[in-house]
Write a protein that binds this DNA or RNA. Structure first.
Lengths: 200, 200
DNA sequence: CAAATTACATACGCGGCGTATGTCGATGGA
DNA sequence: TCCATCGACATACGCCGCGTATGTAATTTG
């Protein structure tokens, strides 16, 4: 009979394999993009072959999905920490979005989650991960409405629009040749938009 | 010697060829996406071969660029008409963005310009077409600031953020199973954000 | 009239994806 | 203890699609 100990060890091996593939994929997708990344190269870099990949993730898109889910979860965690530190819920929201924009400038996040992800996997809301990052900001806006800090608004709608605005701000900053100045302009404009929620 | 008449006729033939390829590409890219569209199928549908394609557009990305430029120009023209019809400049801006969101729901525009375009060609601001659509909204915001209708803000920053918000609103609406209701919620939230520009 | 150029079509090679098949260790019943 | 099974990968194969090199017919130029 298979002991729990042995079974657990086997499962741990598989998780190790998956983790290594995901890590290699992050590296490849971030630097070369999804389309230009070869599965052979990618798996070889992880010390495996395409067999392991198709066994664990089904196909190339499945691997991208796994990578996206992982990064998205990391982003949501980072956002929650930032939002919690703020002195007021409203300031927490602004801080979260500032952090979001700054994260979205990171090449890995921008390339994988914001460009290739939607293009290959479709609208983020249809992702299995349900876009934890979006859920986090939606939750925060919902709380603001519930406690009367801002006038009623559909939380998901507001979160989606603000996320979209942040994402484009990040693309703009990343492509700019004066990132600092561009970021400042983007953040200023963003604040103006967000305050429309607080006032209107 | 080549007469002007003959030269003009030759140029017209090439434009005809380019137009047919672009049209076939629009159809293919819109329905199957850029990556899944075969150049052989695409050119055959236009009654040509890949030879014509590489001669006129360089490579597959070049064709996408041409398609994107064309659609972008059409969008900008449609937006300008909508904005001009409004009774006030501010209302013109709101009308333009309403039109933008509704356009962005159209599968062809969403798939080609908003998803595959940025993923394959990079940030829209780096496109040769200079994103006529974005330029149009930037121009309008600049005018609003100039005439004192809204407090000073960097026009490009504001336009980019609003475009991003609109785009994500459109993705949301398109993926929704109750598009009408979703569109209403999106438009309401968008109006709140935009008013942040007017007030803040 | 020969040489060069244009605007395509045809032919070829290479890489990459997905799948079918093989392998090896672990498991589990007789 | 032995063999049949199964899971987790590796290997092998075929097909498709892109880019490029080459061919070709019409036209222009010297």
């Amino acid at each position: 009979m298979e002991t729990d100990w042995v079974a657990g060890r086997r499962a741990q091996m598989m998780e190790e394999t998956r983790a290594r593939l995901i890590q290699a994929a992050r590296q490849a997708f971030a630097t070369k993009g999804f389309a230009a990344s070869s599965m052979d190269d990618l798996t070889a870099a992880a010390g495996l072959t395409r067999g392991a990949l198709y066994h664990n993730f089904g196909d190339k898109k499945g691997l991208l999905q796994a990578v996206v889910d992982r990064i998205d979860a990391e982003m949501a965690a980072r956002l929650a920490v930032v939002g919690e530190r703020a002195e007021s819920p409203w300031q927490g929201l602004l801080d979260e979005y500032r952090a979001y924009i700054e994260m979205a400038v990171e090449p890995e996040i921008q390339r994988i989650v914001l460009l290739d992800g939607p293009a290959v996997l479709g609208d983020p809301s249809t992702w299995p991960s349900q876009n934890a990052c979006l859920a986090e900001t939606t939750r925060r806006i919902r709380a603001l409405v519930a406690e009367g800090a801002i006038p009623p608004v559909d939380p998901e709608a507001a979160a989606r629009l603000l996320n979209g605005a942040s994402l484009h701000a990040a693309l703009w900053v990343a492509a700019s040749d004066a990132p600092e100045a561009t970021l400042a302009k983007a953040l200023d404009a963003f604040r103006r938009l967000a305050e429309g929620l607080a006032i209107g």
